[in-house]
Amino acid sequence: MEKSLVSIITPSFNCEKFIAKTILSVQNQTYKNWEMIIVDDCSSDETVSIIKEISSQDNRIQLFLLDVNSGTGIARNTALEKATGKYIAFLDADDLWKPLKLELQIDFLKKHNLPFTFSFYECINEAGESLNRRIESPRNLSYRQLFFCNYVGNLTGIYEVNYFGKIPISPIRKRQDWVHWLTILKKIKTAQPVPESLAFYRIRENSISASKYELLKHNFAVYRTFHRFNLVVSILCMTGFLFTQLIIKPRYVKSLI
Rank of each mutant, 00 (worst) to 15 (best):
I54T: 07
S55M: 11
S55H: 04
S56N: 13
Q57L: 14
D58S: 04
D58R: 08
N59D: 15
R60V: 07
R60M: 10
Q62W: 09
L63W: 04
F64G: 00
L66C: 06
D67R: 14
D67G: 08
V68E: 14
V68P: 00
N69S: 14
S70T: 09
T72N: 10
T72V: 13
A75H: 03
N77Q: 11
N77Y: 03
T78A: 08
A79F: 04
L80W: 00
L80V: 06
E81W: 01
K82N: 09
A83Q: 02
K86F: 02
I88D: 06
A89M: 07
A89T: 05
F90T: 06
F90K: 03
F90W: 10
D92K: 00
D92T: 05
A93Q: 11
A93T: 10
D94S: 02
D95I: 01
L96G: 00
W97S: 03
K98S: 09
K98L: 15
K98Q: 13
L100S: 15
K101N: 14
L102D: 08
L102R: 11
L102H: 07
L102S: 05
L102F: 12
E103H: 12
E103F: 09
L104A: 08
L104Y: 12
Q105T: 06
L109Y: 13
L109R: 10
L109W: 13
F116A: 15
F116R: 05
F118T: 03
S119P: 07
Y121E: 04
Y121S: 06
E122I: 02
C123S: 10
C123T: 10
N125F: 01
N125R: 03
A127C: 02
G128A: 02
S130D: 00
S130P: 01
N132F: 01
N132S: 08
P138Q: 07
P138T: 06
P138W: 01
R139H: 14
L141S: 03
L141P: 02
S142W: 12
S142C: 12
R144W: 12
R144T: 14
R144A: 12
Q145V: 07
C149V: 14
N150Y: 04
N150V: 06
N150L: 02
Y151W: 15
G153P: 11
G153E: 13
G157L: 09
Y159L: 09
Y159G: 02
E160G: 13
E160Q: 15
E160I: 11
N162Y: 12
Y163V: 11
Y163H: 14
F164E: 08
G165Q: 11
G165P: 04
K166T: 05
